[in-house]
Nucleic acid binder design. Structure first.
Lengths: 247, 247
DNA sequence: TCCAAAGCAAGAGCACTGCTCTCGTTCATG
DNA sequence: CATGAACGAGAGCAGTGCTCTTGCTTTGGA
């Protein structure tokens, strides 16, 4: 029997094979750090391999030993960003779970955590939820990290369902089959009605964040946090979570 | 396909000042057309002044007689895109108004028209609703065209309110002042409760479209039109429009 | 009618970019 | 210890946005 792949990876990481391998890991991390720094300052389109190399005191061609192309470096940053926003959501959910808060409140807390991460890392947010780079096709490595926020939201709904605290929203006929497939694929233990509403709420949540971050609310909305909180609460209700305000 | 001319443009066009001026207008239009073509094929980041000039049989420096910089060319395309999606929304609204459809149905029709325009012009949509270009600040010329879709939605709600067909959604205390300001600024004749809900629904609508267009629904949602229709209907209800489905 | 002023296209050139290739050097391992 | 792989440096290619100069053409006023 072969051990789990995770364990095998940890094995490799703990077993330092030599100075060269360790240097490689360090340089790779340094490149990503510098790239992330430039990303935060100038944004993805301005991220330049040459500038990263320059700042690191090496020549541009040396960078290709670590990342075969600029897109691959971007992919690494994308994965990191998905992981970071996913971790922020998971942490918020964990904190709420400890306090035994009602599901709707946990939903709002997670939503706010996601929004706050986005406000703190606008360029990284734009990298993962903004316009995709044309010609760039997200490799499979990204789908796992990309799902983390969604899974947190699913968990909240599943918990509410198991506790009998979930009101089933209406479901259009044309959506039932797809909703059942989605439930089976990545939301086991959640009724299809809620899965469909959940996916819609998920997109709407990020719509609010994107509008705020991408400047669509400029000259329109001022009290953005209040609007977000209120709307996130209504989205919680729309997926069937009991209203937190009436508790 | 020429975009809707602005007032002063029409003025100038009717008063032909000379061959030179006419040539200038034609060349400007040709540049925009070619740029739009390349935009549709490759996307905004790949849009190259030199390539546009090459395709038009002129030298790159000549292009600067018409657009002082690449950003200015992009601005022109942005204004056109806002105008186009605004026109699509207005047309859908006009068609629905002629048939005296209930407000919620008109809301859904406008939403679907916007979505369909987005699906037909993904790169232009990404240009106006995707990640903003870092360092690029939208000039004032864009705010008018950018507001058109929103104004169509406001009109529907205002019509429903005047007809006594509007249910007022709840409004958080922290939002009332801002909502009143918004109502005074650009939604006269609409109660503040509805304005706040309207702005949120507006962002959520585009969140759905962006998620679909930017690939976030890949491997998740299949029946995207059905999900959009259902959610647009619920958004209509969330701003207080009478449910169309129960008619 | 003539002429200066303004508009225009072209070309050279600058400082960049991503990326490839070659050339010595250094390291890890059989 | 010797050999092959990994590595950093540098030159070079094709492309980019943008500027400046150089002539030519059109335009509008004297």
């Amino acid at each position: 029997m072969v051990s789990a792949p995770i364990a095998w990876q940890t094995d490799r990481m703990s077993t330092i094979r030599g100075a060269r391998e360790r240097a490689r890991i360090e340089v790779t991390a340094a490149i990503k750090d510098e790239a992330r720094k430039q990303l935060a300052e100038e944004g993805a389109p301005k991220l330049s391999l040459r500038a990263v190399a320059r700042e690191l005191g090496m020549v541009s061609s040396a960078l290709y030993r670590y990342f075969p192309s600029r897109d691959d470096l971007l992919t690494a940053l994308i994965v990191d960003a998905f992981d970071a926003i996913g971790a922020a959501a998971e942490q918020a959910a964990a904190e709420q779970a400890a306090g035994e808060a009602p599901p709707a409140e946990r939903w709002v807390a997670v939503s706010c955590a996601v929004r706050e991460w986005a406000l703190a890392h606008p360029h990284e947010y734009a990298l993962i939820y903004g316009s995709p780079v044309p010609g760039y096709i997200a490799p499979m490595d990204t789908v796992g990290p990309a799902a983390r926020v969604g899974l947190v939201l699913i968990d909240i709904v599943r918990g509410a369902y198991r506790a009998g605290d979930l009101t089933l929203p209406p479901l259009a006929d044309g959506l039932r089959a797809d909703a059942e497939r989605m439930a089976a694929d990545f939301a086991e233990g959640v009724p299809p009605e809620s899965v469909a509403a959940l996916v819609a709420a998920w997109a709407q949540l990020f719509g609010l964040i994107s509008f705020e971050l991408f400047g669509q609310f400029n000259r329109v909305v001022e009290e953005r946090e209040a609007l977000f909180r209120q709307t996130a609460g209504e989205l919680a209700r729309s997926v069937g979570l009991r209203d937190a305000g009436t508790a």
